[in-house]
Amino acid sequence: MTWIVGVYIVSLFLLLITAFWNVDPFTSLVSPGFNLENFKMVLTVPAYIATSIRTLLIALAVTAICIFFAVPLGIYMAKIAKPWVRNLLAVAITLPLWAGYLVKIIAMRLVFTEEGFFNWAMAPFGIRGPGFSIPIVILTLTYLWFPYMALPVYTAIRQIPPNLFDASSDMGAKGFTTIYRVVFPLITPAVIAGSVFTFSLSLGDYLAARFTGGATQMIGSIIAQNINLNPPVAAAYSMIPIFFIVIYLMVARRTGSLERM
């Protein structure tokens, strides 16, 4: 327990302290002290605000896309597929988790690069990829974190007792109505639990933006640039994603779904 406190809490606390330190504008020397300039800078400089909002929107988009695909996948796996197909899909969804994180980012880079697989495969249809930009960052992050959403959603759908579906259809509900009125409310906790992963992992990521985003900057990219140049600003800026995640967790907690994680 002391270890956990020592490693996690103390390092976070040191980070917070650093955010208040001074930095000499000419020599970049950091000296301990107390000023709010770094926070003021992070909250008022337009480039920082734009990056915070961009990162937030990217993380929300990744979460939305993950939910959009995880629910049909879960319904198919849990309720329609034959057992062997279900097991195969479960393996297929979890397997990429064991491929390295950087490997997957580089793989996405290879697919979407100018002379890459996507442009080659889509050339007959006259479609060209958008090049390295925000949509590709969103796709890459979706690719990285999708299993974290798919597995809890699948488990939740699997746990729905079959007689609920019988009851629903006895009451005259068609397939879609059943999915909308019975399945959705029952899997909401799992979706929220999964979204905590997809959201917070996307918020903190910067390598996806660096390798597949072209000029796209996320909060992490700016922190990484400042970490040697101006550690106090980097520390102050790192409070922004922590703030977003705390808000998100508080909202998630209100729905009561974190207890089931």
């Binding site: 049909p72 996948l73 796996m77 329609i80 297929a92 697919v111 690719y143 579906f165």
Partner: peptide
């Protein structure tokens, strides 16, 4: 059991197929 129309099932299968392609193309490349 959950009863779905043929069309809905086909759409679900299409989504699953798309997902598998999306997940494995980069690794394959």
């Amino acid at each position: 059991m959950l009863r779905l129309s043929r069309l809905t099932k086909a759409i679900l299968i299409a989504i699953v197929g798309f997902l598998l392609i999306f997940m494995y193309t980069p690794l394959f490349v």
